[in-house]
Simulated scan of single mutants.
Amino acid sequence: MGSKRRRSVIAVIFICCAISCLNFISSDQVGTNHRDHNPWLCISDRYIMQSYFTTRTSLGDSEFRDYLLLQECSDKIPFKDPNIVSLLQHRNITGEGSHRHLLTSIKLLPLHSQSQFNELVIVERLPLGVFADPFELQNLQQRRAFRDVSVFGDTNLELPSFRSNRSVVEIHVEISSRDYENENGEISVKLPLHARYQPLGDSGYSRVEFGEPDLFLCSSHVPNQQHEQRRCLVLSIGGSKTETGSVVWEIPAGIRSHTEYVSVLTFVAAVLSAFSILVASLLSSKVESCKHPKQS
């Protein structure tokens, strides 16, 4: 009886070891395929997000990654420098009130072939609860703060947070060779953001957390030419949390337990206002009748 139990325990241990080995081999193969993956995109539109929102109305992180896979260049380009990366140096929320600025500083490491890239494309996938004003961004573009900028997704500025969808801001920044060669040089982008009306809560604040942006190095877009594709090198696809530290905006929101008091005060104020208007109208009519007595 004891020998049978011993053999069954050994068999279970052997099966567990075999499964773990298979998982290790498959994960190692996936990692190798990921390293050998060609991170080049061929974009026909002016913006990377343009064709994505042509067929979709909302933003999903997994759907966006699947969309990027469909934009891969058919002609495979050798990836000569595996250490071409961008360093997200600093990321912070500045300002006060419901109008803030998302400050992002990026440093580019040297490239072997720099001439084909002249744009750094930053895709900010904004969380629920905040939005960017397209008209404000157009004014900044006219003042040459950005080379190009556009907002995709939910651009209805009047909707509250619980009725709105996520929006995306795509920023194009012009770069040159000195941005690579200067070791201390950084590219800083300041994106103005606005808070939507937040849902009721218990703490009086709604916590909005920003993930890392998606970064691309792209060749310039050639306008007025059909079938002209520009190449974009994927530097990083941001996650839901940033490695440089959580960037959090605590937006004031109504407290759910205060709704009864607010309703009562609003009702009393409305009744008093209506009564005041009624009294004022009666007094004014009496004054007018005294000034103009009826002629017999």
Rank of each mutant, 00 (worst) to 15 (best):
G129M: 01
N33I: 05
F53D: 08
D61R: 03
H99W: 04
I93G: 09
Q71H: 04
I48H: 00
H34P: 03
L68F: 07
N33K: 15
P39Q: 04
S27L: 15
L87W: 05
L88C: 03
S26I: 13
M49P: 02
D66T: 12
R91P: 02
T94D: 08
L70E: 06
V123N: 07
G97A: 08
D28V: 04
T57C: 05
G60N: 14
S44Y: 13
N92M: 15
D45V: 09
M49R: 08
L59Q: 08
C17A: 07
P127R: 00
E124N: 10
G31F: 12
L109H: 15
Q71R: 11
S20P: 01
L120K: 02
V30C: 05
G60R: 11
T57Q: 14
S62R: 13
N83A: 11
V121C: 02
L120F: 07
S62N: 13
S115L: 11
F53Y: 03
L103P: 01
N23L: 13
S113E: 03
V85Q: 14
D75S: 14
N38R: 06
S113T: 09
H99G: 02
E72K: 13
S20K: 12
V130F: 07
K80S: 04
D45K: 12
Y67E: 02
L108D: 02
C42T: 12
L69W: 14
G95M: 00
N92K: 15
W40T: 10
L109M: 10
I19A: 10
P78E: 09
I43V: 15
S115N: 06
Q71Y: 05
N33T: 08
V123I: 14
H37M: 15
D61N: 14
L59T: 03
V130E: 02
E119D: 11
F117Y: 10
Q50F: 09
Q114E: 05
R35H: 08
M49A: 14
D75I: 09
I15M: 14
Q50K: 15
Y67K: 03
Q114M: 15
D45C: 14
L111Y: 04
L128C: 07
I106T: 00
F131Y: 14
D61G: 11
V123A: 10
I77Q: 02
E119Y: 12
L59C: 06
F64K: 01
G31E: 13
Q114F: 06
F64Q: 01
K80V: 09
I84L: 08
S98M: 15
R91K: 10
S44A: 07
A18H: 04
H101D: 15
G60H: 06
T55G: 07
D36V: 12
W40K: 13
E124R: 14
G31N: 15
L41S: 02
